[in-house]
Design a protein around this nucleic acid. Structure first.
Length: 533
RNA sequence: GCUCCGGUAGUAUAGCCAGGCCAAGUAUUCCGGCCUUUCGAGCCGGAGACCCGGGUUCGAAUCCCGGCCGGAGCACCA
């Protein structure tokens, strides 16, 4: 299609301003349409059966046994976002009902609150299940009285053998009064750990054996495994399906948004709701989320942080919110990503580029630009006729934020400059190269120790005319030491221009031709964390 | 093994329920160009996908069946 090619070529030859002017003149409507399109942000699909409820109530219900990571982002952001869209309420509920295996820790309660706030997901109400144990007991007793649940003293093996055959265990048929007295024995310590559980009656013929008469309470020896908040106050603790099921109803949750690993839990809890005469809320189960190269397994993260494999919860190799925050990933980028992903039930493996692209859009307009010369390499330019001052904007698209200056003072016509070793491959003998903002030089020689060039010309236009590559630089003898912590935990060292002094911890800046980084520490030198290109 | 869920370009997502407007839209990625004293941003163009096989139908990404692949659950965890 040579015709098309020609037309495209001739349009491309126009500057964007010219293109815009012509479109405005001839097809003003097209422009209006384009603007309209831009403003439309991807919207979440509507929540089911919203009209059934007075107002939408969602919740995020973490076990505070680990730092939060990207895997929780969906539950948090979707729940919060839907509550916001429907002007409902968003609850935070800590599910700390396992003092033994998935033991919570006080530090994580606070860490989780911080993460939610950082993500912009402020909650309207907060609950902690270890404060509500008495409530669970009341419902347990009611179920026991009604014969909807029983205390089972079988070993797990005995029970499993029976249930697999769709047969009741010997405890199932007990009179409510007997169950109740067994329940008392659970509470008063007559039964030891593992000697009795409360089970909720379901359908023994349920096709999924895991649904049949599921356990609701077990005994934990809290003198050996004290709960971090309430110590050994309780020895009978509810399991997930009981505590969570009871709370969702009591707290008025209308829409549960959680991972699809909970699909069968809905089935289990529906029996509980039926026993209590309640109606189960709407439940949305999103698919498993992975991100290339990072583990989103809490137990693995927990283990590796404790063992010292990682520096801490915010080690850049981790996909915890703490780590992402430290690397300069903005919560807004995470929010957009999660909304883009939505609540689908298919499993996904995210590419980091998906996150970076969003973050770049958030961060680019505000990040000031600086020169960072990694592994500085000496460049000597001869025949420099005078002193030069380069004035480079702090942000190319926003002149109002000002500029920075770098000064070159030649001695006997020789200017000494530092450039990045990653630009060495450009220094072919005879090549003309421009030092951004300064001048152009021609390469004369390059050896192991230094490069030598000769002054070529001043104007940028000349560089453009020659197609000369543009590289960044700093004057030799200047520059502040700077370590860049990379996403893999490695450190890249170099020098950053002196104007960098003005930055603050937490600032996100762009090292030109290197990438976006977040200022992490300022002492003798700087430590920054690499976000992305 | 059993019980469920899912499969659209490299990645993510729209469309699927109510079959034709889909020779499949969007974002990102990659490639080319324009612009720009950054390899960033912006702009233009391009490349790239309906898991497979049957069936129903005038017509299937969409409905049905089978297969394959992926995932989850099968805890006195959450």
């Amino acid at each position: 299609m040579p015709v098309v090619k020609n037309v495209v070529q001739s349009v491309n030859d126009l500057t964007p301003a010219e293109q815009r002017r012509i479109v405005e003149e001839r097809w003003p409507q097209a422009l209006a349409e384009a603007v309209e399109k831009e403003e439309k942000e991807r919207a979440l699909p509507p929540l089911p059966n919203v009209e059934k409820y007075d107002r939408v109530v969602t919740r995020f219900a973490p076990n505070p046994d680990c730092a939060l990571h990207l895997g929780s982002a969906r539950a948090i952001i979707l729940s919060h976002e839907y509550a916001r869209i429907y002007k409902g309420r968003f609850l935070l509920r800590f599910e700390d009902t396992d003092p033994r295996l998935k033991r919570s820790a006080l530090q994580f309660f606070e860490m989780i609150r911080e993460d939610l706030l950082w993500l912009g997901c402020k909650w309207d109400e907060e609950y902690i299940q270890s404060d509500r144990v008495q409530i669970y007991y009341e419902y347990a007793e009611r179920l026991l009285e009604d014969g909807k649940a029983y205390i089972c003293t079988c070993t797990p093996e005995e029970f499993r053998a029976k249930i697999l055959l769709k047969e009741p265990c010997s405890c199932r048929g007990l009179e409510p009064s007997e169950s109740l007295s067994r329940w008392e024995k659970m509470l008063d310590g007559s039964y030891g750990e593992g000697e009795a559980v409360m089970r909720v009656k379901t359908d023994l013929n349920h096709p999924n054996p895991a649904i049949r008469d599921w356990p609701a309470f077990r005994i934990i020896d809290t003198r050996r495994y004290p709960h971090p908040r309430v110590g050994d106050k309780y020895r009978v603790w509810p399991l997930y399906n009981f505590a969570s099921g009871i709370d969702d109803h009591l707290l008025g949750v209308t829409h549960i948004i959680r991972g699809k690993e909970h699909l069968s839990n809905q089935l289990r809890q529906e029996y509980l709701y039926r026993h209590l005469g309640w109606e189960y809320p709407e439940a949305i189960h999103y698919g498993r989320l992975k991100i290339v190269g990072a583990s989103l397994s809490k137990s693995k993260i927990l283990r590796d942080v404790r063992s010292g494999l990682y520096e801490g919860w915010d080690d850049p190799r981790l996909a915890t919110f703490a780590a992402l925050r430290r690397r300069g990933i903005r919560p807004e980028a995470i929010r957009r990503l999660i909304i883009e992903i939505g609540p689908r039930s298919a499993d996904i493996v995210l590419s980091w580029e998906n996150l970076y692209a969003h973050n770049r859009k958030v961060v680019d307009p505000e990040a000031k630009r600086y020169f960072f010369v990694k592994n500085p390499f000496k460049l000597l330019v001869r025949e420099v006729p005078q002193r030069f001052t380069a004035e480079v904007p702090l942000h190319p698209n926003r002149p109002e934020v000002g500029s920075r200056r770098l000064c070159i003072e030649p001695i006997n016509g020789e200017a000494s400059i530092l450039i990045s070793d990653s630009d060495l491959n450009l220094l072919k003998r005879g090549a003309v190269i421009r030092l951004i903002g300064l001048f152009n030089f021609k390469v004369e020689s390059l050896d192991r120790k230094r490069a030598i060039g000769v002054f070529h010309s001043r104007p940028h236009e000349e560089a453009r005319r020659l197609g000369a590559p543009l590289i960044h630089w700093i004057p030799d003898g200047s520059g502040l030491p700077c370590d860049v912590v990379m996403p893999d935990g490695s450190i890249t060292s170099g020098l950053v221009e002196e104007n960098f002094k003005g930055v603050h911890v937490g600032d996100i800046v762009q090292f030109e031709r290197f990438g976006f980084v977040r200022v992490d520490r300022i002492d003798e030198g700087f430590t920054v964390y690499f976000a992305h290109k």
